[in-house]
């Protein structure tokens, strides 16, 4: 099986200080991979390189087997940046429908199909009937789900999420990860940046640990057999149930 995302010895620096060093990572169809690592370890940077927002100084990136420089089928990838809800301004009268519709701009569909797809995407994220509401009048967690719907509405094959559950309460987080698990079972490949080791433990299949270099990448069960990594990334608290 060919990887959907393939990084080969990717190095990146914003200025002098390297942020990523020779990172090689392959994500395969059907993966549900958590990308973890301390603050400033380069997780967001890595996602931005994958979606073409940043160009690595060296190394290669391939999406669906195609080199990033020539890749154009962006609708195959859904992306939700970190802290996206911070963009929701008090002064902006944007409806939920209008927000989700933006996700279809790179994949033009007819008016009625658009309406149907948006309704479906909102249904999927558990916000049916919210399309007419103003984004700014929703809670932070609900807004997160609207942005997830925006990433899903084009029916991508891969989903890249950068800390999508920051500021979301425990029960809602649990539901959010259940939803991702369900989408993954339906065939969606997911790469999610998170600090929440407890969620990682219960829901994801693979784990990748980044700290400028890729420290570990493998099946979740493998990860648990490396107590030193596992302990380090859970702040030494051994939250990971299977770690002992």
């Amino acid at each position: 099986m060919n990887p959907v995302i393939e990084l080969e010895k990717v190095s990146f620096a914003y200025e002098e200080e390297p942020v990523l060093e020779e990172v090689s990572l392959r994500i395969y169809p059907g993966d549900f991979c958590a990308l973890i690592g301390p603050n400033g370890s380069g997780k967001s940077t890595l996602l931005k390189i994958v979606v073409g927002l940043l160009q690595p100084q060296s190394g290669r990136v391939r999406l669906f087997g195609e080199d990033l420089s020539s890749f154009r089928q962006w609708w195959r990838i859904g992306y939700v940046p970190q802290k996206v809800t911070a963009l929701v301004d008090r002064a902006l009268p944007l409806t939920v429908y209008e927000t989700v519709a933006l996700g279809l701009l790179n994949k033009p569909v007819g008016k009625s199909e658009q309406a149907q797809r948006i309704a479906e995407a909102l249904e999927t994220v558990g916000l049916p009937g919210a399309s007419g509401r103003l984004l700014r009048e929703l809670s932070g967690g609900q807004q997160q789900r609207v942005f997830l719907a925006r990433a899903l509405v084009g029916e991508p094959e891969v989903l890249l999420l950068d800390e999508p559950t920051t500021g979301v309460d425990f029960a809602a987080q649990e539901k959010f990860y259940d939803l991702l698990g369900e989408l993954n079972r339906r065939g969606l490949t997911i790469l999610i940046v998170t600090h929440d080791i407890a969620m990682v433990d219960r829901h994801v299949k693979q784990v990748a640990c980044l700290n400028r270099r890729l420290v570990f990448h493998g099946e979740h069960s493998e990860f648990c057999r490396h107590p030193e990594i596992c302990g380090f990334f859970s702040g030494g608290h051994h939250i990971l149930g299977h770690c002992h």
Binding site: V51, G52, L53, W74, Y79, V80, V84, L87, L102, G103
Partner: peptide, 12 residues
Amino acid sequence: SFDEESARASGL
């Protein structure tokens, strides 16, 4: 205007 990063990532 609203979310430049996502707009770029979606190929606009």
